[in-house]
């Protein structure tokens, strides 16, 4: 890429006052570096991925409201986690977490188990227990 072709498209980087560094070639075809504030193609991919996450969060919220899944699923999605990552954070097997994702099992969980989830989501046990999706 030539230095003059470097994209300067508005992007998510600005929210953190960041620019990114790229290796580009100058007029004599020699390598140098230059800063870019963002690139539309990359922003499109990030936006798509955020959109998908938001859809999943909304779906989880509705499922909690309809008593199909436990609040664990909602907070898992909210924290961009999947079962594997969540299981690692609470130090349990994935199949245990899957059971806890059912509303019936969730209601019977002890406070110490709930605390593990609450810590993983950085919320209080009450917030976790009382979330009804409505």
């Amino acid at each position: 890429m030539k230095k003059q072709d470097i994209p300067q498209d508005e992007s998510n980087l600005q929210s953190a006052n960041m620019t990114e560094m790229l290796y580009v070639t100058d007029e004599n075809n020699n390598y140098t570096t230059a800063q870019s504030i963002g690139w539309e193609a990359k922003k499109a991919a990030l936006d798509e991925s955020m959109e998908l996450i938001n859809e999943r969060i909304e779906e989880a919220r509705q499922n909690v409201a309809n008593n199909l899944v436990s609040p664990i699923v909602y907070f898992m999605e909210l924290n961009k986690m999947d079962m594997q990552v969540l299981a690692a954070y609470v130090n349990m097997w994935q199949w245990t977490v899957k059971r806890h994702a059912k509303p019936k099992t969730f209601k019977k969980l002890s406070d110490s188990t709930l605390k593990k989830y609450a810590d993983a989501f950085d919320i209080s046990v009450d917030e976790l227990k009382n979330f009804n999706g409505k």
């Binding site: 890429m1 990114e20 790229l22 290796y23 580009v24 070639t25 390598y31 690139w39 193609a41 990359k42 499109a44 991919a45 990030l46 798509e48 991925s49």
Partner: peptide, 22 residues
């Protein structure tokens, strides 16, 4: 989308890595 993100996100790279190699 995942392919582009792995390709061009900060620190990982398709085009970007080729330029560093250049």
């Amino acid at each position: 989308g995942q392919l582009i993100r792995m390709q061009e996100e900060i620190g990982t790279g398709g085009g970007g890595f080729r330029f560093i190699y250049g």
